[in-house]
Nucleic acid binder design. Sequence first.
DNA 1: CGAGATAGTTGACAAAGTCAAATAATTGCC
DNA 2: GGCAATTATTTGACTTTGTCAACTATCTCG
Lengths: 316, 316
Amino acid sequence: MPSVNLPLADDRAAAPDAATAALRRFNRFYTRFAGVLGPGYMGSELSLIEARILYEIAKGQPLASKRIVEALSVDPGYLSRILRRFTQQGWIARTRGADAREHPVRLTPVGETFFSELDRATAASTSATLAHLSRDEQAGLAERLAWIEARLAGAPLPPPAIRLWQPGDMGLITAQQAVYYRNAYGWGDTMEVLIGEITSRFVRDFQDRREQCWVAERHGELLGSVFLVAETDTVARLRLLYVDPAARGHGLGGDLVGRCIAFAREAGYAELVLWTHTVLASARAIYADHGFVIESAETHDEFGKPEQSEHWRLVL
Amino acid sequence: MPSVNLPLADDRAAAPDAATAALRRFNRFYTRFAGVLGPGYMGSELSLIEARILYEIAKGQPLASKRIVEALSVDPGYLSRILRRFTQQGWIARTRGADAREHPVRLTPVGETFFSELDRATAASTSATLAHLSRDEQAGLAERLAWIEARLAGAPLPPPAIRLWQPGDMGLITAQQAVYYRNAYGWGDTMEVLIGEITSRFVRDFQDRREQCWVAERHGELLGSVFLVAETDTVARLRLLYVDPAARGHGLGGDLVGRCIAFAREAGYAELVLWTHTVLASARAIYADHGFVIESAETHDEFGKPEQSEHWRLVL
DNA sequence: CGAGATAGTTGACAAAGTCAAATAATTGCC
DNA sequence: GGCAATTATTTGACTTTGTCAACTATCTCG
């Protein structure tokens, strides 16, 4: 379910701290929403923290208190008492760690049973919340949650996955690049038409063994793409290389070009050509890195304003 | 920043309760994330609940305890004590309501000052969390939060907004319809090409006064679209009417067709024609409702399998 | 070996939250 | 109009939750 990020005119008019307001609003909403699920966790006798602690133990198995304190930022003294209660319930047992200061805990069989029941009940309750959503909406929800978590956590994002094209990709690619080149370089509607024609033609004339399109995707978001099309029997053309600004600087463009070159060699082409523009500095750097050289240059006016374009070639 | 929901092959392979797992995971993440902001709210002396109560009062001004209890599901006794503390602090004053059982509270000037400082501090802190995100990411975040809140709250979704097309829409429309017709009717790649060509041509030959495209959008999601293009001087053609399954049954398709008809009349066309398929029952119903009648029908094989198609006409 | 750090526990509290009974006002019903 | 039932809020008497600092048992490093 890939989507593309298209900043549009009306978004720009929005207040600069609209995002702040949105997050605060969501915060209010979610504390209430989760709070409904929360106190007296899922009808069990556990409080939310206790449930979280049990979850950490179940996940980490022989787990020192210290780890729980770190993971949940709970007071060590408080934790100690909770763990004693768990022990009295027969859910956990203390073990000896390599370091004898630690008294790692693990679930007893009774604890395993209790936890798995709790887990199942929680899942069922969450699932019920989601029951009124359609399959597509559920998938959309999961994707959005992952996206949000990644950004808010400030955690390093996973590298985008590169895959072959599939139906639906062409339109997204067209939209993404058209909007990007409009915003970044002021290239007009003709650009959108041009890209649309290239992608349409690609699907129409697609030759399995001699042509290909690669797409980079992360959390359902399109982050880059490149096309390799047959020009003649011996010449292949690389087209529409694109890397989203959000994904630049991690070698994604190079990866995509690398795939093209490898594929072109496999397919038995003698050379690989491409057409690009002088303003597209980072793309040019990638081409140069991979051994492409400029054959010729010319200025044209197809994008609504004059641009210097260049023809590059790589002998395979 | 519209996006489209494209259910793809690999998504279908995902476990049926992937969404449940995702929500539970997010729950764990967000309680921790919000918890960081939470206890000892934003460095103020208030707890999270106290801050929320103050927020409700500031928002609702003369506000009966009862309302707060409802909004926040806090214990009335507990609230009573908190309100007494607020009164002692000089932040709020009790008033008499029309119903003398109620003792609505409102902020004193001191309270107003205190609240606005707290509010500013909270906003600043939230804003700081968002500082490492780009403009686009912030906008994307806000949209996703709103989307999620709407689904999880189970609140009635706002009706989609209908607007005129803008750059980038064409690709999204193409992708959306291509994927939909593939999944729902098994129409193949030619369909994607066909739609892509129609949308490309629309942008290329766009005539401001005689042609138009309307797009329905909600929370950044494309939910429907329709095109009106000039066929001859006196005949206009309605093309590519589409309403997302998620938005059906609320008259959106009718609205879109209505806009086309109104525009066609304005623009001075004598008639409006369209081409559709017998399997597209709901679209056909809309056309019939708006006075279109079938002129002719034929079977063709352009979509990868034989389909019965129909030509409809409306005299304006 | 011994000083200083680390993991966990305990005692003594403070804060947060709950529940039922009490109070004051209102509504509905004859 | 009067009285029982209901509603909004408060209060007392609790329990639970959470905090902080002191304490014990180990470990680490020179």
